[in-house]
Design a protein around this nucleic acid. Structure first.
Lengths: 163, 163
DNA sequence: TACTTAACCTAGTAAAATAGTCAACTAATA
DNA sequence: TATTAGTTGACTATTTTACTAGGTTAAGTA
């Protein structure tokens, strides 16, 4: 089992999306700036998130990504699974052939651990995270910091929208 | 966070030890044969287990390893930590400086997940695993299979002991 | 129609970690 | 003294990670 930056980035980006995509799609450029994640890497992760039907992309100016479902219907487990992080803790992937076609001495332990983690991540949704005070705080701070980068661009867009 | 063969091997070997070292120390050669783990790799793992005061080694003929404490006092979390597997799920190792000296958007989520896994593995001891029927079954099977390799040697030892 | 935007796609790559191997050395026992 | 088995350190093939670089395609905008 491994949970690396791949899964962390995916969840962080999805949470950013849930936070900012209420009105219109959010570009990966914005997410990359706010969350300090490499744009190209984000693109690769979102290719998988799209294939898993978690997000939908809109091309062209004013485009970007938005969630396919409500934030309360997207669990952390789904996101982590979508980008290919193995939550399973066994060597055999649950096949019980870890030692010469048989279960190894600790097979059940790792199965139970995997189930335990999976059910924990399944019960947490993006909406749950959005509701937390700490998350709101951090998101606010990121807005402040990324303002120079993002808002100048968005401001121009907004002016055009008003026209 | 990652839980790889390193941690799995360590727990498996410790469980094998708990099972077989009641009477006398168990050699890594025996463990390697029963659990199909590379001997040299086992040596590296046991160096760390020894430094963590989980096992003690006895040199020379009749030597081997035995547990430092009772099986009911050794948790899976201790073993996994001893061989250096990071159970922590954060990028920052709990320092909360994951994004430019501040906490990232999902810092708390990964902290909570890490705590959750850690407390799960802390409450399970080697004795708990030994008590399980499945573990007994597998250990029996391994004894059968490894008999050709191990018992011939042990039989000779036993004859000498009787003399 | 030309231009810009941003999604979408493919291939490559430096660095790190994993899961080992190999070889030597030390201590205890028979 | 020979053997056993722990102890140690250095080295290595393979895999994965987290990227970068470069393109193509679709949709709006001037």
């Amino acid at each position: 089992m491994r949970l690396t930056s791949k899964g962390r980035y995916a969840v962080t980006a999805m949470l950013d999306l849930a936070f900012h995509s209420q009105l219109k799609p959010v570009t990966l450029i914005d997410i990359a700036a706010r969350q300090t994640i490499s744009l190209s890497y984000l693109e690769q992760l979102f290719a998988r998130l799209r294939r898993a039907n978690l997000v939908k992309g809109v091309r062209g100016p004013g485009g970007g990504y938005s969630l396919c479902s409500n934030a309360c219907d997207i669990s952390i487990a789904e996101i982590v699974a979508a980008v290919g992080e193995r939550i399973d803790a066994t060597k055999c992937g649950g096949e019980a052939n870890c030692q010469k076609h048989h279960a190894c001495l600790t097979h059940d332990l790792w199965m139970d651990l995997g189930d335990h983690i999976k059910s924990y991540l399944q019960q947490i949704t993006l909406a749950d995270l959005l509701a937390k005070g700490r998350v709101q705080e951090v998101a606010e701070r990121q807005n402040q910091e990324a303002r120079q980068v993002i808002e100048i661009r968005n401001h121009a867009d907004l002016m055009n929208d008003i026209k």
